[in-house]
Amino acid sequence: MKGTNLGELEELILLSVANLAEQAYGLAIRDFIKERCARSVSISTVHATIHRLEDKGYLTSRYDNSSAAERGGRPKLIFNISSAGREAIRVARDQRNNLWNTIPSLSFNIALT
């Protein structure tokens, strides 16, 4: 159904949040993507995307005050993936796997030479 499909960056960020389990906040997500995907995303883009995902119901958030010292007393907003979010990345993976599985092996050979 139209509207539940994820954008590429959205998918990346959902996966990162799932990976970071309880440690996912804006800066950590940016660094995670940079480290694991060798791709630099600006912090503002990350913030815009996570809030969009939260609005869509794929992420839940809570405040965490434990490390406020180096943040000028500001809390972290920790994100967790909701069951809808989990479903969305699973759907995305299935869609892709489905398409990957049906690529004729011939086209692979050509692509690899």
Binding site: Y25, G26, L27, I43, H47, H51, A68, E70, R71, G72, R74, P75, K76, L77
Partner: peptide, 13 residues
Amino acid sequence: RLFDEIYGDLLED
């Protein structure tokens, strides 16, 4: 509502 979170992240960075 977002300022605290975003400014906190920026400050940490």
